[in-house]
Each structure stands twice: as C-alpha cells, then as structure tokens.
Design a protein around this nucleic acid. Structure first.
Lengths: 161, 161
DNA sequence: TATTGTTATACTCTATAACTATA
DNA sequence: TATAGTTATAGAGTATAACAATA
C-alpha cells in the first residue's frame, strides 16, 4: 500500500431502517430514496478503497486529472462542481502525496496545468479497476435489464441527454 | 419567517457535464449516477427550504422527533445513521431555536426524551408540506409509471423489503 | 460492565471574500 | 475589467476517545 492504511474522517453510513420509528412520510420522498441508494453506492466505493487514504472527491480528482493531462485547476473545479479554492486544496492534496504535479502552461502564465506522476498514474489505474469491480458487484443486485432501466431513469431525472 | 433568512454553509451543487472532458469511465459507475441524481434531489430540498436556515439532517431530526415524541438522542442517532455526539449537536440546535425540548424520561435517568415545542411542530408541518411539494415537482420529470419503477429499483438496490 | 449523554478534538468538504499576478 | 490561482476564514457534517452518571 502506498498510502496510509487507515482512512480517517467522516464516512457517511447508510440510513438504517429503525423498527418502531414513524418516518412521517420521509421515506415517501424521492430525494430520500435517492440519498439512501447513494449511500449504498458509497459503501461500494469505500470497500474498493479500503486501505487507501482517499475520499470520493479526491478519487474523482485523481481520475479526471489522469484522463485529462494539462487540465487547469479551474476546469477541475468545474468538473467537480466545486469552487476554485476547493480545486486548489484537492490539487495540494495530490501534490503533497506525489500523485500529481503542477506545471506552467505555455499559453497562459496565470494557469497551472495538472499532470499525474507515475505514482499517481499507478494509483489511479489500480483504484479505477477496484472501484469498477466493487461497483459492478453492487449493481449486480439488479438484473442487467433492470440496471439499464435504472440508468435511463436516473439520467432522465437529472436531465442528461 | 421564523429562522434566519440566509442558509449558510456548503450546499453541494450538481455535477455539471463539462464538454471536452474525458470522464474515464467515471460516468459508467452506478454510484456516480446515483450521486448525480441525489444532488438533483437535494436541489429540490433546497428550493423547499429557501428562506429557512435548515439542512437535510436538521430537517430529518425535526420531522423524526415530531413523529416520535419522547425519542431518545441515541435512537435519533440510529435513525440518522450518525454517532451519539452528532445527535446531541442536532438536539442542541433544535433546542437553541426553541423547536424542541429535552425532558427526563421516567424509566431511565440517563436518557432524555425529545419533544417538539408548538413552534417546532408548526415549522415541521410547514416544511413537510413544502418539501413534499417540491419533491413531487422534481419527481414529475418522470411519468408516474417510471416513478414507480424507479422506486422499486432503488428499494431493491438498498435491500429494502 | 454496558449504556446515555456529554465534552473535546480533529478532519473533510464546501463556501465566500479579498488578494496577486496576468490577461 | 476579467480570470487563475491563492490565502484566510467560516460553517456543516461527521468521527473517535474519554468521561460522569446511571443501569
């Protein structure tokens, strides 16, 4: 393992159904059902990254920088839906661990281009494989037909093309 | 309005699709699709609670205490899937705003029972109506048939009966 | 011994505002 | 003026650990 063995910090747990509790229509809310499902998906991620000190946004940053070398921090922020300052902290985190480097871009002296180091590339590819496998195991709770339907409905819900 | 008019703190925004970016299979991950959908649902919640200083866990605490008077903090924590210390902070928050009260329970001198005040009940019922309406508007992006399918698949995914 | 609530501490995630250097 | 990055600050959410009172 390259990173610390213990993931610290908040790990949102799934929402257990407590017997005898009146949920007062809370479980009739679509947003609540989505939240529960998302937490179940998070657990798959957590299993995939056990033993590696990483979190979902950090994983996303790692993968996105890996697939888009030379990306600027602003663009990374746009992809993550986060403010520039957050993209900077993520970049710091990657750089401190030797996973990525900032390099000056030719066209614009204000911006940095982000690039994974060999170590970052190795971690990215290892984790991508693991996350994919765990996610597939999670998705296997549905038939492939159901899964296709679910993906279509989720896309429609968020207005994806 | 009874609460502060401005909700502060982090409001997770939705994940925009940035053109020209290689997502490297990230969007093939079910957990990622669920996350995007959940954020869209969160926006519905945010619209419903505009002008009221409340967050999803605080809203959940308000509703759950309202529907289960005499609930202990430990049970509230179990419902929310959070540690006791978190349930305590939520209870403090409710109490500071005059929305709930702690009262000693007869059976166990260690535990507090939680009860909404009239003000808490009023806020709870107003917000429940608004959240339900906004959630319904959000859900209307799907046909009622699709919605039924989605709910069934989400329940199956989290292993709900 | 175990549980309830509490306090203390820490870390992640996110945001806004003000600043600098550059465009 | 506008943008990229940075710094400072703040609040929300979550966790663990240790403690007192009670079971």
């Amino acid at each position: 393992m390259k990173q610390r063995t213990k993931a610290r910090g908040p790990r949102p747990s799934s929402i257990a159904r407590v017997p005898g509790i009146d949920y007062a229509g809370l479980d009739g809310i679509l947003g609540y059902a989505l939240r529960r499902a998302q937490l179940a998906g998070f657990e798959a991620f957590h299993g995939a990254t056990a033993g590696v000190d990483i979190t979902p946004p950090r994983y996303t940053a790692l993968v996105i920088v890996g697939a888009n070398p030379g990306l600027t921090q602003s663009t990374l922020g746009a992809v993550l839906g986060t403010a520039r300052s957050g993209a900077m902290l993520l970049t710091d985190w990657l750089e401190e661990r030797g996973l990525a480097r900032r390099r000056r871009l030719a066209g614009d002296a204000r911006a940095w281009g982000l690039y994974l180091t060999p170590r970052g590339k190795a971690l990215s590819s290892r984790l991508r494989r693991r996350v994919k496998a765990y996610d597939a195991a999670f998705a296997r709770r549905l038939s492939s037909r159901e899964l296709g339907t679910l993906r279509r409905l989720l896309d429609k819900l968020v207005g994806a093309p």
